[in-house]
């Protein structure tokens, strides 16, 4: 390897670009929300104090900063609505992730084992839902699930049920919506992991006496671990904070943090409380990511 050399200005700019992007459009808004979360709720526009002005002197900034408080976070801890929303969100996301994994795995396996010339088409089909608006696809589920929707009508026509099933506006409908919407995010990393596997590994396992089930459990599944983890994170993380699906398909009893946040922002105008909840959500979601990163680093250490 060559000795470390100084990077040219052009190279620095190229490397800096994504960091600047993240800084401007992700980190800065996050800081704003963090600041609001330690402000006081007031009846005004915007509904929080203090507000920093460009004309503020240093002393004024210091005086305003003195009014920061963690009341919103304390309220978060004591308000069971938030706690329940978090738990319910995590549960719904976890169940949805598990179901998506169970559905996507055989799919991905079939795609990876399909004749090579068919694979690009199968990937295209897996990504096909993205060609239609996400919102429209979720609305379509209303038409399917509601009391006089397609599914109930079909079941009634077949005489399997006499009264419509309550499917729409339930937590179950939210799970269905999440699994449906996020399935491609599970499918594609799984496919990528399975497609990479050398088929001779499966033959070697069979040759050494492993039945097809054992080949799957001992070789195919462990070797697809990275794909499973990547897919699970890609489904779980956005699902926890999902707002549109519970809002459209969920019932009044379906608690999800995204909705609770929305209510606090737009109905209660309690911006500090909602901001604190958002910051807490980010912290909660960092945990699985950090665990994964740690496992990955430990793996790499093993390799040395």
């Amino acid at each position: 390897m060559s000795a470390r050399r100084r990077l040219s200005l052009g190279e620095r700019l190229v490397i800096a670009a994504p960091y600047l992007w993240i800084g401007a459009f992700f980190l800065a808004p996050m800081l704003l929300i963090a600041k609001i979360s330690v402000s006081q709720s007031v009846l005004a526009r915007p509904p929080y104090r203090p507000i920093f002005e460009p004309s503020d002197s240093l002393a004024a900034i210091w005086a305003k900063a003195q009014t920061f408080s963690f009341d919103a976070y304390r309220a978060l801890m004591s308000d069971t609505l938030y706690l329940e929303s978090y738990l319910s969100s995590l549960t719904i996301a976890a169940v949805s992730t598990l179901i998506a994994l169970i559905i996507a795995y055989p799919f991905a396996l079939a795609m990876a084992r399909a004749p090579e010339r068919l694979r690009p088409m199968l990937i295209g089909l897996a990504a096909a839902p993205f060609w239609t608006s996400f919102l429209i696809r979720v609305y379509a589920w209303i038409a399917l699930l509601k009391d006089d929707g397609l599914i109930n009508n079909a079941l009634m026509a077949l005489g399997l049920i006499s009264a419509p099933l309550q499917m729409f506006a339930t937590t179950g409908a939210v799970v269905v919506g999440i699994v449906y919407s996020y399935l491609p995010f599970m499918l594609l990393p799984l496919y990528a992991a399975l497609e990479r596997q050398d088929p001779s590994l499966r033959e070697a396992a069979a040759d050494l006496g492993a039945s097809p089930a054992q080949v799957f459990l001992r070789v195919t599944l462990p070797l697809s671990r990275e794909g499973v983890i990547a897919g699970a994170l890609l489904v779980f993380i956005p699902a926890v904070g999902e707002f549109v699906i519970p809002d459209l398909l969920g019932g009044s009893e379906t608690l999800m943090i995204g909705r609770t946040l929305w209510n606090d922002f737009f109905s209660n105008h309690d911006w500090p409380a909602a901001s604190a909840a958002a910051i807490a959500l980010v912290a909660v979601l960092m945990i699985p990511l950090l665990l994964w990163e740690r496992a990955r680093l430990a793996d790499e250490d093993d390799a040395r």
Partner: peptide, 15 residues
Amino acid sequence: YRRPVNMMFQSYALF
């Protein structure tokens, strides 16, 4: 997997 014959693969196919 039921044959009392084992194979050494050209690519070795180690797990």
